[in-house]
Amino acid sequence: MLTLADGRRVFVKAASSEHAPAVADFHRREIAITRQLDTPWTPRLLDAYDDGTWVAGVYEEIQGRLPTQPWRPDELDRALATLVELTDALTPPPVDHALLREPRLGGWQALAAGGGEPVERLRTMDPWAVDHLEDIANLETQAPHALAGEALQHGDLYPFNIMLNDERIFVIDWPHAWIGAPHCDTVTLLSSASLSGVDPQKLAERHPLTRAAGKEQIDVTLAAHAGFLLRIATSVGAEADQNLVAMMTALGLASVRWLRNRL
Rank of each mutant, 00 (worst) to 15 (best):
E150R: 13
W258S: 14
F170M: 01
G252W: 03
D241R: 12
E30W: 04
G227M: 12
V55T: 13
L122A: 00
E85I: 03
T87A: 10
L244T: 15
L2Y: 11
R104S: 08
A204P: 04
L230Y: 07
W54K: 01
L189P: 09
T82D: 02
S255F: 04
T124L: 15
Q242E: 14
G52R: 12
D88P: 12
L99A: 05
T68M: 07
A181T: 04
A224S: 09
A20H: 10
L253Q: 12
A98G: 00
D199R: 11
F26W: 14
R121F: 13
V198W: 07
H176E: 14
P159I: 01
M248K: 15
A246F: 14
A193E: 02
P103R: 11
L45S: 09
E117N: 13
A137G: 13
A193M: 06
L133Y: 04
D156S: 10
F228E: 02
A204H: 01
P200L: 09
G116T: 10
H183R: 04
G227L: 08
V256I: 15
A5M: 14
L190H: 08
D25I: 07
A151C: 03
T124N: 14
G237M: 14
A233Q: 12
Q63N: 11
D173M: 09
G149Q: 03
S196T: 11
P127G: 08
G115K: 11
M125A: 15
P40Y: 04
A224V: 03
E120K: 13
R8A: 07
G106Y: 03
D166E: 11
H183A: 03
D156Q: 08
E205N: 13
Y59T: 06
P43D: 09
G149A: 07
T186L: 10
L152H: 00
A22T: 05
E18Y: 06
L164S: 04
T53R: 08
R211N: 14
G7M: 06
V220Q: 07
E60R: 04
L253C: 14
D50C: 10
P182K: 02
D77K: 06
P175W: 07
A81S: 15
R260E: 09
T53A: 07
E61Q: 12
E239D: 13
